[in-house]
Design a protein around this nucleic acid. Sequence first.
DNA 1: AAATGTTGCAACCGCTTTCGA
DNA 2: TTCGAAAGCGGTTGCAACATT
Length: 329
Amino acid sequence: MGRAPCCDKASVKRGPWSPEEDTKLKEYIEKHGTGGNWIALPQKAGLKRCGKSCRLRWLNYLRPNIKHGDFSDEEDRIICSLYVNIGSRWSIIAAQLPGRTDNDIKNYWNTKLKKKLMGLLPLSHHRKQPSFPSSFTLQNPPLSPSAHQLYGEYCTYTPTTTTSFTSNIEPPFSLPSSNYASTSDITTSVSHPFYQNQDSMQCYYPIMRDNSSNNNNNMLMFGSEGSCSTSSDGSCTNQGREIIKQEERIGCHSYNNNNDNFMLSHSNNINDGEKSCAAGEWFSQTLLAPLGYDIEDIKQLISSSSSTTIFNNVDENKTEEKAMYYYYY
DNA sequence: AAATGTTGCAACCGCTTTCGA
DNA sequence: TTCGAAAGCGGTTGCAACATT
């Protein structure tokens, strides 16, 4: 027993829309509106189409001010920033990009942007030993007592995936020039993630201080799988709260406020890619400030969305691979 | 030039959420 | 409060266009 179809498939036309159908639908909606009833609309408009199909055609293609074609760097950054933090909630992401549809963004992400990012990293499937500039050494981060407690608990896992790391890679899209002095000043680290607590799906990142610079740089982190998170008690956390919660937990935001600069790295034994990490060396990190959007920006973006259910029902099983890029600015 | 592989995107499918009776 | 219909949404598919062999 399947679900009842929304319409009689035998009697409705399917497949690509003809220009005539487009014209009929457009003219009808411009004249009468949708009437809040898509199911009844095709009949009224003289179309042999399913209401859902009409709705989709209108929303994704026919409605005014739809933008098609290339995405700008700024749009790339917004998409990535939001994806990092809220996942594949395309409608919410689309709400931040006037003229773009969720379908467009989803397609763009799946076919281009993700590859654009992934193209930088030999992610995943590699088990490279991390390699860092010699100036980078591990500093145990100044964790809050509660974070220490947390990490002491979490960091007893042996990594199942070795961090890979490449520095000084061009970012996949341009950053505002004010964000950095020159290309060589950008440290882009790509990491196959971290590794995950197999029980809780919690992701871990090591953090390392850059001793080579006296600048009061802030770190920007872009891209992570971290937004997929299930708390250690097994309950799936509300994702919006999780962002804030994790920030508080590990004090990431205060790092930025303190103008510390630090970056992703592995343990203090750089050559030991497979070693277990000691308590306090690894950070669980969902969110910092992706590409110029700090936490407040993101929250504001999200809260300005028309949706009221942004963070509900996080799929705790999503484990899609993502890249991580770190920028100094 | 033909065959095969790849890419991009529109459209579909079906599950979830919302809304109104 | 419950229930059914409709809308919303994200994942997936189909296919045309393009690239490569």
